[in-house]
Amino acid sequence: MSISKNKEKAAQKILCIGGSTLNEGTIEKIKDALIATDFLQEWAVIFVKHLYFFVYGSQFYNVKTKKDIEAEWAPNQTVFVDHTNIYSVNKQKIYILPDPDICKVKEASGWNPMKNCLVVNCKVENNLVKLEAVESKGIDKNLDAWLKQNMDDASNSSRVKDLLNDERLEMPCIDKFMMELADVKTKINDLTIAGLILCGCYGDGAYGLKAIKNEGGATAVQDPDECWHSQKRATWSMPSTALENEPNHEKISIEENSDFTSLTDWLKSIR
Rank of each mutant, 00 (worst) to 15 (best):
K5D: 15
N6D: 08
I17S: 01
L22S: 03
G25H: 01
G25A: 02
G25N: 03
I27G: 09
L40V: 05
W43F: 12
I46P: 00
Y56D: 03
G57I: 02
K64T: 01
K64Q: 08
T65R: 10
D68T: 04
P75W: 11
V79P: 00
V79F: 03
N90F: 11
Q92Y: 02
I94K: 10
I96Y: 10
I96M: 04
D99S: 09
I102M: 07
W111G: 08
K115D: 05
V120H: 02
V120L: 04
V124S: 03
K130E: 12
E132P: 01
V134I: 14
E135K: 06
K137H: 12
G138D: 08
I139M: 01
L143C: 03
M151G: 11
S157M: 13
K161H: 08
P172S: 03
I174N: 03
L181H: 09
K187F: 13
I188W: 00
D190N: 11
T192R: 06
A194Q: 02
D204L: 13
Y207M: 07
G208K: 00
K210L: 13
N214P: 03
G217M: 06
G217W: 05
V221K: 13
S237T: 14
T241I: 08
E246F: 14
N248V: 15
I254K: 06
N257T: 14
S258D: 05
S258T: 15
T261Q: 10
T264N: 00
K268D: 11
I270S: 13
I270L: 09
